[in-house]
Amino acid sequence: MAHLSKELYEKCKSVVALYPEARSALIPLCHMAQGQDGWLTSEAMEDIAELTGVTPAEVRGTASFYDMLHLEPVGKHVVALCTNIACMLNGSMELLEHAEEKLGISAGGTTSDGEFTLEESECLAGCDKSPCVQVNHRFFGPLDDKGFDQLLDDLKAGKLRDDVPSHGVLSRVDRKFPLALSPSEIAAERVEMETAKSQRDEKRKISEGAN
């Protein structure tokens, strides 16, 4: 009995089918499992291992490399505050101090009500809106102390539900189409393209020779 819901399990299978090798789907599937559970559980990793043809240890070993994949439970809202150079120049380190005080946790921690996890992040590519913050990987900024407090209030009050899905949901849009071509068709098309090209090369040689 799989841990992933039946519907999600089927969706995972369709993602695996997009790749020449099943293991390529490992990270997309980790995201999808996080979308269901909010973090990457051991049970989900067992399913992913089965779906991609590797061991659960290989899934864990791979996932642990990546900042976005959480191997432990996190809060409902993961608030990532960038303190890299562009944001730092615009006061993000001071904003982080404020955030820590406001939430009563240090970066890396989760509030006792499970509402917020605070992360000090590296550059999120929102430097024109610095200091910039991501909540469940959706952008906000530029933020000052007041703006940050307002953001927390809005999140708690559920005002941003349309913009900020629950933690772990990477994409609310699914791919609609399976691959159009089967591997044998791809091979046939490539042979055809190569033949056409060598014929063109041949013609070019003849016309160049004639000049």
Binding site: Y19, H31, A63, M68, E122
Partner: peptide, 14 residues
Amino acid sequence: FSLDMVIHPGAGAY
């Protein structure tokens, strides 16, 4: 000409 394309997500690693 036929082409398939896949959008693949990263997971946070510079």
